[in-house]
Design a protein around this nucleic acid. Sequence first.
DNA 1: GCCAAAAAAGAACGGTCGTTCTATTCTTCG
DNA 2: CGAAGAATAGAACGACCGTTCTTTTTTGGC
Lengths: 197, 197
Amino acid sequence: MTKGHETRNAILDQAIDLCSEVGLQGLTIGQLARRAGLSKSGLYAHFQSKENLQCAVLEAAADQFTHSILVPAFRQSRGLPRIEAMFHNWLEWGAVKLPGGCPFIAAASEFDDQPGPVRDALARHIGNMLAMVARAARFSMDEGHFRPDLDPEQYAFEYWGIILGHHNYFRLLQRDDAELRTRQAFQGLIARAQTTT
Amino acid sequence: MTKGHETRNAILDQAIDLCSEVGLQGLTIGQLARRAGLSKSGLYAHFQSKENLQCAVLEAAADQFTHSILVPAFRQSRGLPRIEAMFHNWLEWGAVKLPGGCPFIAAASEFDDQPGPVRDALARHIGNMLAMVARAARFSMDEGHFRPDLDPEQYAFEYWGIILGHHNYFRLLQRDDAELRTRQAFQGLIARAQTTT
DNA sequence: GCCAAAAAAGAACGGTCGTTCTATTCTTCG
DNA sequence: CGAAGAATAGAACGACCGTTCTTTTTTGGC
């Protein structure tokens, strides 16, 4: 049970990096095998189809998301401090730790018109993230940091828009003001969540 | 000069639809030829490489963007009415007219780590769109519809985030509240642009 | 240290990719 | 109408795709 899972995890680590660059579709068995130092069939045996591999990559990326963003954020006290930590970790995860940005964002527009288990898994993961964002907003309301009449779902939508905008400005457009714009937008979102206008 | 350009345009029309579903990478010469009712080599002769085809598709999509969004919006008086028309047309373009959503958004995360002429063209087109959004905001300031101390660049960033969020909620997540969330976020953006908080 | 079981390699498959030829069919204009 | 030239078709290429075999190597418990 040890060696098999060990290489499987090593494969998935490589796969997350590769996927963040070329997407889930562009992720190819041969390329990945070369990168992981395995034969094509040796790698293939760990997953039984490319579809399984793609789902496994998403699962592994979700674990990494939890480890890089949620766990450290949950060490902050609930409410505003946790929300700010979450946002900070989020940007760092997509911009620093991954060579090609958030794999979920990369996969999102690839699979939005490709029904099947991969798309379902992807939608589930992103849905979970958004639910987490809304939950954190609800905690902030409970703590009195956010105003009591805030709509947490609307908050999550606008939060997600900022993350997507940052990804676009930073990755594709490579604009110098990407971080500035993102930070200003986030501060605006927080300010609006605190006091009714 | 007539027949050649005619079929070339017909090819590109099909290509935009196909690309909006499978992306610029997923767009394949064979598939596109079958869809357009041509032989592979017959189609290929119109572009001299796949890269040229991809750039041509982006160019054609930009034309369609201008025709579907900008031209009708420019029939509204400058300032707020034009901005609202633009936003309305934008959502309709991505959600109704194209089978797979905005091809620029679909291509954005595919090419954000693939240097080359396609990526450059894509960044240029999206940059132009964002400049257009900022320009429209500046017009609104001139007209007195938006407050004079508004930052048009920040406005454009947040606008783009809403569009991206809508694409995600509507296409991938298929959430029923996609339009509601989008509209609320846009109204908030407009309200903030009108009066200082 | 042996042996069953697990893991990896190797070769091969049908298929499609982008691309390049040559040959054929259509347009167009004098 | 007929010829020059543009537009399309067809066949073929090497490469890589995902997948399936069989064979070899490695691992772990006795």
